[in-house]
């Protein structure tokens, strides 16, 4: 699976896919998409990087990537943002919206071009869920590749 065509295509295409996934995660409260969709796109870019290379290259490349801590930080951060609503309100209350904190700007009502500094807890939850989804799906593909693959490499 590691021909020159696939390697060249990956070298050109993978950065574009990763940037597109990060864009979907970070602009989840403005444009279509969100944490899950952006995480899936980002994980597909990382899966392209995994599948197109040899076994030892993948091992060296993903040795220092903290996938399990990212997954745990994503889940705990999502629960923490939900628990933040318990400060006087209910679970999952959007407390940061319209408060002036980071991502706490005020959205004009009606049709507007979209401002990044809005959204309240939605932006934080998008980032945490995206982190969690990309770590989970990438670790599944990586463990499939490292445990099952690597024996016959002729196609």
């Amino acid at each position: 699976m590691t021909t020159t065509i696939i390697k060249t295509t990956t070298r050109i295409l993978a950065p574009l896919i990763l940037v597109f996934g990060a864009y979907i995660i970070l602009h989840g409260h403005l444009t279509p998409g969100g944490g899950f969709q952006g995480g899936a796109v980002f994980a597909s870019g990382l899966a392209l990087l995994i599948v197109a290379c040899e076994d030892r290259v993948v091992k060296r490349r993903f040795e220092k990537v903290p996938l399990s801590p990212l997954e745990s930080i994503g889940a705990l951060g999502f629960l923490g943002m939900a628990l933040l609503g318990l400060m006087g309100y209910t679970f999952f209350k959007n407390v940061i919206a319209n408060s002036g904190f980071i991502f706490g700007g005020r959205t004009p009502i009606g049709i507007n071009p979209g401002f990044l500094n809005t959204g309240g807890t939605l932006a934080y939850m998008n980032i945490f869920v995206g982190m969690k989804v990309l770590a989970g799906l990438t670790s599944i593909v990586l463990i499939f590749f490292l445990l099952l693959g690597g024996k016959k490499d002729e196609w």
Partner: peptide
């Protein structure tokens, strides 16, 4: 990708 990695072995 998962199906191909499973079929590969």
């Amino acid at each position: 990708a998962m199906y191909l990695l499973a079929i590969k072995n």
